[in-house]
Simulated scan of single mutants.
Amino acid sequence: MIWEVFRQAKTGEYHTHCGNVHAPDREMAKQFAAIQHGRRKPTNSLWVVPREEIGEVGSDEVAFGGTTDKSYRWATAYNTTGTDAREVVESEDEQATAEKQRGDD
Protein backbone atom coordinates (compact mmCIF):
# COMPACT_ATOMS: atom_id res chain seq x y z
CA MET A 1 0.00 0.00 0.00
CA ILE A 2 1.27 3.49 -0.83
CA TRP A 3 1.05 6.29 1.75
CA GLU A 4 1.56 9.97 0.90
CA VAL A 5 3.63 11.99 3.37
CA PHE A 6 3.21 15.70 4.16
CA ARG A 7 5.79 17.52 6.28
CA GLN A 8 5.48 20.61 8.48
CA ALA A 9 8.84 22.28 9.13
CA LYS A 10 7.79 24.63 11.95
CA THR A 11 4.71 25.08 14.11
CA GLY A 12 2.13 27.20 12.33
CA GLU A 13 3.46 26.55 8.83
CA TYR A 14 1.59 24.60 6.17
CA HIS A 15 2.17 20.92 5.60
CA THR A 16 3.71 20.29 2.17
CA HIS A 17 3.93 17.06 0.23
CA CYS A 18 7.40 15.57 0.58
CA GLY A 19 7.00 12.08 -0.90
CA ASN A 20 5.51 8.68 -0.16
CA VAL A 21 6.28 5.39 1.54
CA HIS A 22 5.26 1.80 0.89
CA ALA A 23 3.91 0.07 4.00
CA PRO A 24 1.35 -2.63 4.87
CA ASP A 25 -0.41 -0.61 7.61
CA ARG A 26 -0.67 2.85 9.18
CA GLU A 27 1.81 2.26 12.01
CA MET A 28 4.52 1.01 9.67
CA ALA A 29 3.82 3.90 7.30
CA LYS A 30 4.30 6.38 10.16
CA GLN A 31 7.57 4.78 11.13
CA PHE A 32 8.86 4.69 7.55
CA ALA A 33 7.79 8.32 7.03
CA ALA A 34 9.64 9.43 10.15
CA ILE A 35 12.80 7.64 9.01
CA GLN A 36 12.66 8.65 5.34
CA HIS A 37 11.16 12.14 5.48
CA GLY A 38 11.38 13.38 9.05
CA ARG A 39 15.05 13.15 9.85
CA ARG A 40 16.66 14.92 6.88
CA LYS A 41 15.20 18.39 7.40
CA PRO A 42 13.80 20.25 10.42
CA THR A 43 10.40 18.69 11.01
CA ASN A 44 7.62 19.57 13.43
CA SER A 45 5.08 16.97 12.28
CA LEU A 46 4.20 14.56 9.50
CA TRP A 47 0.87 13.64 8.00
CA VAL A 48 0.71 10.11 6.59
CA VAL A 49 -2.33 9.47 4.37
CA PRO A 50 -3.34 6.47 2.23
CA ARG A 51 -3.01 7.44 -1.42
CA GLU A 52 -6.52 6.24 -2.26
CA GLU A 53 -7.97 8.53 0.43
CA ILE A 54 -6.70 11.68 -1.29
CA GLY A 55 -9.36 13.31 -3.44
CA GLU A 56 -8.86 15.79 -6.25
CA VAL A 57 -11.12 18.55 -7.49
CA GLY A 58 -10.10 19.56 -11.00
CA SER A 59 -10.87 22.63 -13.08
CA ASP A 60 -13.05 20.48 -15.33
CA GLU A 61 -15.41 19.90 -12.36
CA VAL A 62 -15.44 23.32 -10.69
CA ALA A 63 -14.86 26.88 -11.87
CA PHE A 64 -12.14 28.21 -9.60
CA GLY A 65 -11.57 31.89 -8.84
CA GLY A 66 -9.56 34.20 -11.01
CA THR A 67 -11.96 34.25 -13.94
CA THR A 68 -13.17 37.80 -13.27
CA ASP A 69 -11.13 40.74 -14.56
CA LYS A 70 -10.00 42.64 -11.48
CA SER A 71 -7.15 44.56 -13.07
CA TYR A 72 -8.56 47.75 -11.54
CA ARG A 73 -6.96 46.64 -8.27
CA TRP A 74 -3.46 47.24 -9.66
CA ALA A 75 -2.04 50.69 -10.29
CA THR A 76 -0.46 49.46 -13.52
CA ALA A 77 -3.94 49.05 -15.00
CA TYR A 78 -4.53 52.81 -15.02
CA ASN A 79 -3.47 55.16 -17.78
CA THR A 80 -1.90 58.15 -16.02
CA THR A 81 -1.85 60.36 -19.09
CA GLY A 82 -4.83 61.83 -20.85
CA THR A 83 -7.94 63.78 -19.96
CA ASP A 84 -8.41 62.37 -16.47
CA ALA A 85 -5.79 64.65 -14.89
CA ARG A 86 -7.22 67.71 -16.62
CA GLU A 87 -10.70 66.87 -15.30
CA VAL A 88 -9.33 66.69 -11.76
CA VAL A 89 -7.66 70.08 -12.09
CA GLU A 90 -10.85 71.60 -13.54
CA SER A 91 -12.89 70.13 -10.69
CA GLU A 92 -10.48 71.57 -8.11
CA ASP A 93 -10.71 74.98 -9.80
CA GLU A 94 -14.52 74.78 -9.72
CA GLN A 95 -14.45 73.92 -6.02
CA ALA A 96 -12.10 76.82 -5.27
CA THR A 97 -14.35 79.23 -7.22
CA ALA A 98 -17.43 77.99 -5.35
CA GLU A 99 -15.67 78.45 -1.99
CA LYS A 100 -14.76 82.05 -2.92
CA GLN A 101 -18.35 82.78 -3.90
CA ARG A 102 -19.58 81.43 -0.54
CA GLY A 103 -16.92 83.41 1.30
CA ASP A 104 -15.12 80.33 2.72
CA ASP A 105 -11.64 81.84 2.15
Rank of each mutant, 00 (worst) to 15 (best):
T83P: 03
S71F: 02
D69L: 11
D69G: 03
G82L: 10
N20C: 11
A98H: 01
H15V: 05
E90L: 11
D60G: 08
H37T: 12
T11Q: 12
Q101Y: 11
I35A: 08
I2W: 11
S59A: 10
F32G: 01
E92C: 09
A23K: 07
W74V: 01
S71H: 03
T81H: 01
Q101S: 07
T83G: 03
S91P: 00
W74K: 06
G12T: 13
K10R: 13
E27H: 09
Q31V: 10
A34M: 07
H22L: 11
T67Q: 05
H22K: 01
D69I: 13
S59N: 14
E61F: 13
G58M: 14
Q36S: 06
E13N: 05
G82P: 09
K30L: 05
Q36E: 04
A34D: 02
R39Y: 12
T97N: 03
E94G: 03
Q36M: 12
D69W: 13
E53P: 00
E94P: 01
E56I: 10
G12C: 09
A75R: 09
G12H: 06
E4W: 14
V48K: 04
R102W: 09
T83R: 06
R40C: 05
E52M: 13
V49D: 01
M28W: 14
H15I: 06
M1R: 00
G66H: 08
R39I: 05
G55Y: 14
P24I: 07
E99V: 02
A29D: 02
E92L: 07
S91Y: 05
R86E: 11
P24Q: 12
N44P: 00
C18P: 04
T97K: 09
G66Y: 07
T67M: 13
T11A: 15
D60I: 06
A85Q: 07
F32H: 15
I35W: 13
K70F: 12
S45R: 11
K41G: 01
T81F: 10
A75H: 00
H22F: 08
D69C: 08
K70V: 15
E94N: 07
K30G: 03
K70A: 12
D25L: 09
G65Q: 09
R26H: 10
Y78T: 01
H17F: 14
G82T: 09
L46W: 00
G55R: 15
Y72Q: 06
G58S: 15
P50V: 04
T11F: 15
V5C: 08
V57S: 03
E53M: 07
